[in-house]
């Protein structure tokens, strides 16, 4: 109980928010708009889970927004070339993994700081994409949208993929040795080395996995519209990191839980509709998100300080 205090408090905050919405704005829970909201949030959940793993291993990745756009473009181009959709999906995953491997190589192989490495790859990839695509939207063949399913079924599929991934990852980080290695490396990489774990290798694979998740999120996002947008994904890295941090993933590494990340993401995602219903102008959304991030960080800081004393 005590161990999950942080996650539970976020879940409680989310519960209160949902309760208030239910009381004052019951039509928030109307099926179709709610499903649309969840579908829009699903790719972000995938990214947030990935970045949570990165932060747990005591690294950071701010290139995921750019990588997301690169993957979207690749998948879009492949799909537009009339190749079957699975090929497009594979292309997206592959390119994502490749981009992640580049980050991982620089961070784990050359032992550079992940913040500057991913800053550099973020800028490079974004502008390379702009250069090659000129920001032109890619028209997708009709079979691509919603995986060729009716819209509602497609929305369920997208949400289902995100949920399945979350369950899988939550299970993996808890019950698979590889998942525990991530926590071990983030908690104390020297102790991990003594226990026979290879910290650099673990870090490398975490970045590769993060990249592949970018590819997955890109596909999940692309199928929601008739066109693939090579300009997308701006600021996604911040949303994902915010969800992870609010959800209780400690930036000092080694701590965090993917269910907490889900709670954090939903909390942040519910703010803007809640504001709308409360009559607050939606322009406050970003400020409130920032304040919530700071609140979460400060809460962790104060807690750590108390523990030290």
């Amino acid at each position: 109980m005590k161990r999950h205090f942080r996650e539970l408090s976020v879940a409680c905050a989310l519960g209160v928010l949902l309760l208030l919405l239910a009381l004052f704005a019951p039509n928030f829970f109307d099926a179709q708009p709610l499903l649309s909201r969840l579908t829009a949030a699903a790719p972000k959940l995938v990214l947030a889970c990935g970045v949570a793993l990165v932060i747990i291993s005591r690294q950071i990745d701010i290139s995921i927004g750019s990588l997301f756009a690169v993957c979207t473009t690749c998948a879009g181009l492949v799909a537009a070339a009339k190749l079957p959709l699975p090929v497009a999906i594979l292309a997206s995953l592959g390119v994502g993994a490749l981009g992640g491997a580049l980050n991982g190589l620089l961070v784990a192989g050359l032992k550079l700081q992940s913040i500057v490495v991913t800053l550099a790859t973020m800028v490079t990839m974004r502008y390379a994409l702009l250069l090659s695509q000129q920001g032109v939207l890619i028209n997708l063949p009709p079979g691509a949208q919603w995986f060729g399913l009716p819209m509602t079924a497609g929305q369920f599929t997208v949400c289902g993929i995100a949920l399945a991934l979350l369950v899988l990852l939550a299970f993996g980080t808890k019950h698979l040795a590889a998942g525990r290695f991530i926590y071990a490396v983030g908690s104390d990489s020297e102790a991990a080395r003594l226990a026979g774990i290879r910290p650099q290798l673990t870090t490398f694979w975490v970045f590769v996995f993060m990249g592949a998740l970018c590819g997955l999120a890109a596909v999940m996002n692309m199928v929601q519209s008739p066109q693939a947008d090579p300009n997308g994904g701006r600021g996604l890295e911040l949303e994902a990191i915010a969800a992870a941090v609010v959800g209780g993933v400690a930036v000092s590494g080694g701590r965090g839980n993917l269910w907490g990340v889900l709670a954090g993401l939903l909390l942040l995602a519910c703010i803007s509709p809640a504001l709308t219903y409360a009559g607050v102008k939606p322009y406050w959304e970003k400020a409130i998100q920032g304040a919530i991030i700071l609140l979460a960080v400060v809460a962790d800081g104060v807690r750590n300080r108390k523990k030290r004393n």
């Binding site: 808890k174 019950h175 040795a177």
Partner: peptide
Amino acid sequence: ALRLEPASPTRRVDW
């Protein structure tokens, strides 16, 4: 456990 169990990443963790 981390000290005693083999360091193979694919192993299932038995809590």
